[in-house]
Design a protein around this nucleic acid. Structure first.
Lengths: 158, 158
DNA sequence: TTATTTGCAAACCTTTTGCAAGTGA
DNA sequence: TCACTTGCAAAAGGTTTGCAAATAA
């Protein structure tokens, strides 16, 4: 999706909530859609500090990230490292994640059969499904070389 | 699994690590296996304060929960409510969770086909799978009655 | 003009940790 | 005995919030 379109949608979203398009919000939006990486609030804050532009405080970064998430511009992912990870959504198909326990690397994958089975499992319990997330954890090729084979005692919740 | 057997395993586990069986650890173990509910550290701490027995500090609750998790006695679940949720493992088959966004209720389910597809997805990316968790989020039957149908803007990461 | 935003620093919440006193083996 | 544990309170780490000054519309 072209960036102008994203900005337009954001403006509509703000208007619909009687919110203003400030230079900080605009900078956040631009920066977030300038990368395809997964990032944390702190990461984004640090990018913004290091790049030219109107200063943005940490508080505003958090507030705007929430806003973008509510607006469906961003999605969150808890990678189990104590901080929320964000990724942008528009023009980015739904996918699940594989997390490397060694280096923190995040890979994406998608399996339509799994998706369908999830819908059925939910129905069977009488729930209306709103969202889901599936996280696989293990060691990537690089970390498999560094790391001894994982022992049962290293395993976390499955 | 009978409780005596669980205690025996815990003693072995401690012995193997040169750790001692204190009254606090024993109380924690007993309490945790006395329920089939999912609970948080704070919840457990509050149970212990309200019930007769040797006092157990918050710090010890956290330390012992980590110990029990490492030993494979407990599994953790991040239900997305800001705190870790625990459940006991022994005699409890692996399962995934469905979380109610309305009331926080947690249901369990299991699908062997999904499990197999996860293994394959992991292999395809060159990862060695250690663990996984799948969380479906939606509204349970009770909350569907209370709650208006969910709108797209309510949706969180999928 | 004026309701909304921002930045700052303090507050929050869950979890972890340093340290001196206590205790199981 | 003595290494391991506990409790306390302080610290940590990510995130949220109150408030006065700044700003978009």
């Amino acid at each position: 999706m072209q960036h102008a379109k994203v900005v337009e949608r954001f403006e509509e979203f703000l208007k619909g909530r009687n919110l203003k398009l400030t230079s900080q919000r605009r900078r956040l939006l631009d920066r977030v859609f300038a990368t395809h990486e997964h990032f944390s609030a702190e990461q984004l804050y640090s990018w913004l500090r290091g790049e030219p532009g109107d200063p943005v405080s940490r508080a505003t970064v958090y507030r705007t990230l929430s806003l973008l998430t509510e607006g469906g511009f961003l999605a969150t992912l808890d990678a189990g490292r104590g901080e929320l990870i964000y990724e942008h959504v528009l023009g980015h198909e739904h996918h699940d994640h594989i997390l490397c326990l060694g280096c923190g690397r995040i890979e994406e994958f998608h399996d339509e059969v799994i998706e369908e089975l999830q819908r059925r499992a939910c129905e069977a319990k009488g729930f209306v499904l709103v969202s889901h997330d599936l996280r696989l954890r293990g060691y990537c090729k690089t970390c498999q070389r560094r790391q001894p084979a994982s022992k049962a005692s290293d395993r976390t919740a499955t």
